[in-house]
């Protein structure tokens, strides 16, 4: 990709990540002013699902970049969008957590404690969010330099655990028999499974080329 296109692509990525939030904000504003039904029949559920699923979707999209780069080296430049997507996933997850604290727990510590004591899906969601915190904090170039590439890479593998916890969180909240989370689960499973497969393949190719050269 020619470098001069990069700013445009970045602008599109920002719009894609912020646009839906702006739309949600607009609907919230309208529901508070002119049109009470702007957020649908169950506004709490609308905002909760919108922010929660949005965060998970962005996280899974960010996890697609590495396998795509390995499969199609021509698209290697996509890595420049990985941090952006990851940070937006975290921002959406923060809004989702805020939704919970405001609309479900009503800022009441006993209510949160009660949920933590009894509800695994709350733990799964909280884990998914909490694991993203160190990743967001170490997302700067300075952190990579300070930590060293190897250690930074190891730390950022936490994103796999975060995504798995996110999917688990989704399964635990839907009713038994409902298969709505299946699509994103399969997508995540494929993206995670591709990683060892692609590195094994790369290693094999590597030894072959070395053998051919010798």
């Amino acid at each position: 990709m020619p470098n001069r296109w990069l700013p445009w692509f970045k602008a599109v990525a920002h719009l894609a990540c912020l646009g839906p939030l702006a739309w949600l904000g607009w609907r919230m504003y309208r529901s508070a002013t002119s049109d009470p039904s702007a957020l649908g029949p169950d506004p709490t559920e609308t905002v909760t699902f919108f922010t929660g699923f949005g965060a998970l979707r962005l996280l899974v999209i960010s996890l697609a970049i590495t396998p795509i780069r390995r499969l199609l080296p021509k698209l290697s430049w996509l890595v420049r969008f990985r941090r952006l997507l990851g940070l937006y996933a975290f921002a959406w997850a923060c809004l989702h957590l805020l939704t919970y604290l405001w609309l479900y727990a009503a800022w009441s510590w006993p209510a949160i404690e009660d949920d933590l004591a009894r509800r695994p899906y709350i733990w799964a969601g909280l884990t998914a969010w909490a694991l993203m915190v160190p990743l967001a904090l170490t997302s700067t170039a300075w952190s990579i330099r300070t930590l060293g590439g190897k250690r930074w890479n190891w730390l950022h593998r936490l994103v796999y655990v975060s995504a798995i916890a996110g999917v688990l969180h989704y399964w635990w909240i839907v009713k038994a028999g409902v298969l709505a989370p299946l699509q994103i689960t399969i997508l995540l499973a494929v993206l995670l499974a591709l990683r060892p497969i692609l590195s094994w393949w790369k290693r094999r190719e590597g030894t072959r080329t070395a053998a051919a050269a010798a």
Binding site: L39, P41, D42, P43, T44, A111, D115, R118, P120
Partner: peptide, 22 residues
């Protein structure tokens, strides 16, 4: 008696504004 996965102490009124649903 809570549902194992969520509380049944409160409910969300359908059609109410978001800050008045509970």
């Amino acid at each position: 008696v809570d549902h194992p996965r969520w509380s049944q102490k409160t409910e969300r009124a359908i059609g109410a504004p978001i800050w008045k649903q509970r």
